[in-house]
Every structure is written in C-alpha cells, then in structure tokens.
C-alpha cells in the first residue's frame, strides 16, 4: 500500500454534531497512510436546503469549494458525509453541460480550471485501500460484536451519480465490518430513509422512520447500528430517546460511525475516535462482544482442537 494524498472536505456537521466522524476519519486515514489535505477555507457544499431552492445555486456553493481546492493544488477530494458527496458530485456532473457551467460561473465568478473527482471515505477504504490491506492491520478485532450496517439512502443513490456499490443492497460496509472481525447481520432496510433533515421541522418523520430501523436492528439482536452519514447518526443516536418516547420503545442501541470501529480495530486510541461523543454509549456493545467471545472460548475449550483455533484466531490476528 503506497502513501496516498487526498484533498479533504469535512462538511459543516464535522464541526458540530458529527465531530467524532471527522476525528475518526482523520485518525483512520493516518493509520492507513492516507495523507489528508483540508480544502483551505472550505464553505457549505450546498447541501439539501440549497438543492431545494435551485440546482444552479447548490452547484455554485459546491463549485466555490473546488475553486478553493484548486488554490491548494488539490484535484481529488474525499468527504465522509454522503450528503456533501452527493451535492459535490451533482455539481461536477451538471457542470459538464456548458450552459449550466456558465450559469454557475455567473454566481461564483471563479470558473474552475481543472477536472475534479469526489469520493466518499467509505469508497476509498473499500476500493482504493482494499479490505485485505485493512484486515492485515487489524490489531483489535471486533470478534463477537453483532452489528447491522446502515448506509442511509444517499450513500449509493442515485446510482448514476454515486457509481458505488448497489443502490438497493450495498455490501461494502458489510464487508468492511466483517474484515474487522465483526459479525455482520443482514439488514434488509440498510438503505431505507431515516427521516433525513426533517428531525427539526417534522419530528414524526424521524420517530417513524428511524424508529422502524431501530426496531428491526434490535429484533435482529444487533449490539450496534453502524452508520456512514452524520444525519442518520444524529437521527438514530441523538434522537433515540425521542423515538423511544414517541413509539413507546426502550431501545438503547449505540450508533457508531464505521470509521470509529475501523479506528478501534486498527488500534487507534479511543480518545482520538470520539467514542465519548456518542449519546448512546458504545461500551455495552464492547461488553456484549467480550461476553460473546468468552462464551465462544469456553465452548471451544470444552471441545478442543478445531473449535479452539477458530475462536482464538481473531484474538491472535
């Protein structure tokens, strides 16, 4: 694995509600030898609200960031947030049309001079770094932790824009978590909408939709719901008690970012991964994991030979 250098767009929530996503992304990239260069003085990507106003406007807000990237000599950008990714990608795609590009330029007054690419952190880990390379570096496997991966609706959609994994049943995060040693449960609603940004203006959207996700994840016996989107994380974690109150449920499911678990497995110190920033504490998931591990070892000791090697393989790796 050669050293990789990429431009980095953290996204606004990385400064607030998803501090831990930003921190763990940086830590994981460091551990994997990816050098991140922040886009200097980046600004809002356009995101959902601008998108609801006008496509040229949202693309112009995105384009300013590419113009900033150019000042630092950055062409290829990654971002952890799928919403930012979609908007940045959409802008590049739309600007292939000359008239659209001219309209964007009329707003930014800073025409772009070079071609750019944007990828998600997940895509870079899975496609560019590769699962085998990550697996090799695992020092603290997640053996025994039952997780459901929840991608959210934006990570792979629309397929023609995102061009990554399946828009209906993606597997990249499943495979990544499995490479860390976790027991990945098949989660049929892994791309169903969580209620998105309606948490504030229409709370019922979140209590209903995210509630359904939590119900199903709990029903499957998951120790954690692993996410890749700040908005999903906020809905499932910060609003979990609101959801419980609205639906008369008693979920206490931790909702870590996949980068936090990758970082843990790679041996990154926990304080760099922002575990303490999660509202629903992650500790019970680790406890459950250790219990499961201990149980497996106990069973293995009763039945020596084949069973034993299997149970301890994760620990030794």
């Amino acid at each position: 694995m050669s050293a990789v250098s990429l431009g980095y767009y953290p996204g606004c929530s990385g400064l607030g509600t998803s501090l831990e996503y930003d921190a763990s992304t940086r830590a994981v990239c460091r551990a994997l030898g990816i050098t991140l260069q922040d886009i200097p003085d980046w600004t809002c990507c356009g995101s959902t609200p601008a998108h609801t106003v006008d496509h040229v406007l949202s693309s112009a807000l995105a384009a300013r960031n590419f113009a900033q990237a150019e000042t630092a000599g950055i062409d290829d950008v990654i971002t952890p947030c799928p919403s930012c990714l979609k908007n940045l990608r959409n802008a590049l795609e739309h600007m292939e049309d000359d008239l659209f590009r001219a309209r964007v330029d009329a707003l930014t007054e800073r025409p772009l001079t070079r071609p750019h690419t944007v990828k998600s952190v997940l895509q870079v880990l899975v496609e560019d770094i590769g699962l085998d390379a990550i697996k090799e570096k695992v020092t603290r496997p997640l053996t025994g932790m039952k997780v459901v991966p929840y991608y959210g609706c934006l990570m792979t959609r629309p397929a023609s824009t995102m061009r990554f994994d399946s828009p209906e049943y993606p597997m990249s995060m499943d495979n990544l978590l499995a490479a860390l040693g976790a027991e990945v449960l098949p989660f049929p609603l892994k791309v169903e909408c969580c209620g998105a940004s309606f948490g504030i203006p229409k709370k019922e959207a979140v209590t209903r939709l995210s509630g359904k996700l939590l119900d199903l994840a709990a029903g499957l016996g998951a120790h954690a719901v692993v996410v890749a989107c700040p908005l999903c994380q906020m809905n499932l974690d910060l609003r979990q008690e609101q959801i419980n109150a609205a639906n008369n449920t008693h979920h206490a499911l931790p909702v870590p970012y996949f980068t936090q678990l990758v970082g843990y497995a790679l041996g990154v110190p926990e304080k760099e991964l922002g575990f303490d920033k999660l509202i629903m504490p992650l500790a019970p998931a680790f406890t459950a994991m250790q219990e499961a591990c201990a149980k497996a070892t106990a069973v293995a000791e009763k039945k020596p030979a084949a069973g034993k090697t299997e149970a301890t393989a994760g620990g030794a790796a």
Binding site: G16, S18, L19, D41, C44, V56, A106, L107, E241, I279
Partner: peptide, 28 residues
C-alpha cells in the same frame, strides 16, 4: 445531551470566504 458533548459550539465557525458565499447568494 448534545451540549456537554461539545458537539454544539455556541459560536459559529466562520469561514474567511463567507463574503464570497454571501455574494453567490446575492447574485442568485
């Protein structure tokens, strides 16, 4: 829940380029 986590900074992180962004909105 959120405030003690340091997730919600009371003061905004202002970008130097905020005028540029405001200009984009104004031009729009």
């Amino acid at each position: 829940k959120a405030l003690p986590k340091g997730k919600m900074s009371i003061l905004p992180h202002r970008a130097k380029g905020r005028k540029e962004v405001a200009d984009i909105l104004r031009r729009f």
